[in-house]
Design a protein around this nucleic acid. Structure first.
Lengths: 179, 179
DNA sequence: GTATTTTATTGACACGGTATCAATTAAACA
DNA sequence: TGTTTAATTGATACCGTGTCAATAAAATAC
């Protein structure tokens, strides 16, 4: 019995995901994206695609899962060495991760499912931040959801505009907004 | 020479737009939307579609233009009878318009072009609001773009969650956030 | 290292939607 | 009422999808 994954499968799935990401990064019109195009970019046969994915949405979903896994790892690190000054260093890690993958996230955030999951992560950050502020006697005067939605709006705009501020500078604006 | 528009054209274009909107409102999967489906819903022939639109994107764009035209009209009214208390009554009109057409806007805001145009309208509102505050000596401490992006994030979330607050209540939260 | 198993490739297929056309029917206009 | 314009109809070539059986290539087991 094959306990380990066949290296061909691992390679094939990696190539398809890389192909999708590279096409997305090039601003390839998402509504015109075909399995053909993805397979060509991956330098694999079209039929091979269907051995691993139901359709493009399926590939997209699996790719999203991996990206968010990465984001989670990044945030985990940020929590552990927390010498935070104003409870916002998780937010900075979050923004730095988006900054590094701006082209990808800019497109991905159009996807409703993806955005909902990013929202959930942001909400966690806000709740954590909110707890920190509560201890200092400076609670938010609006629901955490509204704070998170607000931050997501700012991040989306920031990516659309080509990240005009550094992650740190943007974080300051966001924190400033909630003084 | 035909100075006036042929009533058949007017009727046909209206039917196609109504068909698109009704399908969108029903949460019809946008990526699977076909010209066939739209023509059937409009009770018109598929070939007739191509007499008026290049493709679905074209129909979408023309429909977006009309919706935003309506939004502009709404806001124009709000400015004229402005007995504003805190400079935010344009914002309330904006939210009321979105509230009335929540199902449609919720889907439309996924469209990048549409969102950019709504952002521009919001930015106008924020600038107007900002001027008002400046006179009172309470300027925003962040760029207007960031305020607008923040509001758009909140509105997007509000629509996705099925408008859990009334337009007035939400406006209060937003204004509160910028105290 | 050879045999066995699993994956990838190839070429073929039916299906459905696209975009366009010429011919015909129906409606609007003058 | 005659002329113009729009809508319908049926046909067409084209392209992407999803699946399949046969074959080639690579990985694993012995």
């Amino acid at each position: 019995m094959s306990r380990k994954i066949d290296p061909r499968i691992k390679r094939t799935k990696r190539l398809f995901k890389e192909a999708l990401i590279s096409l997305i990064q090039e601003n390839y019109d998402k509504s015109k994206l075909t399995v053909q195009t993805i397979a060509e970019r991956a330098e694999l046969n079209r039929a091979t695609f269907y051995l691993h994915y139901r359709d493009i949405d399926d590939l997209m979903e699996q790719t999203i899962n991996e990206i968010l896994e990465e984001l989670h790892e990044t945030l985990k690190g940020a929590t552990e060495d927390a010498h935070f000054t104003n409870g916002s260093n998780r937010l900075v890690s979050f923004l730095e991760h988006f900054y590094r993958n701006a082209g990808l996230y800019n497109v991905m955030l159009e996807n409703k499912d993806f955005r909902k999951r990013v929202f959930a992560i942001l909400l966690d950050i806000v709740i954590y931040w909110s707890e920190y502020r509560k201890k200092k006697g400076r609670s938010f005067n609006v629901p955490n959801e509204i704070v998170a939605a607000s931050v997501l709006g700012i991040v989306t705009w920031w990516l659309e505009e080509g990240t005009p501020y550094s992650p740190n500078y943007l974080a300051n604006f966001i924190v400033e907004r909630f003084k």
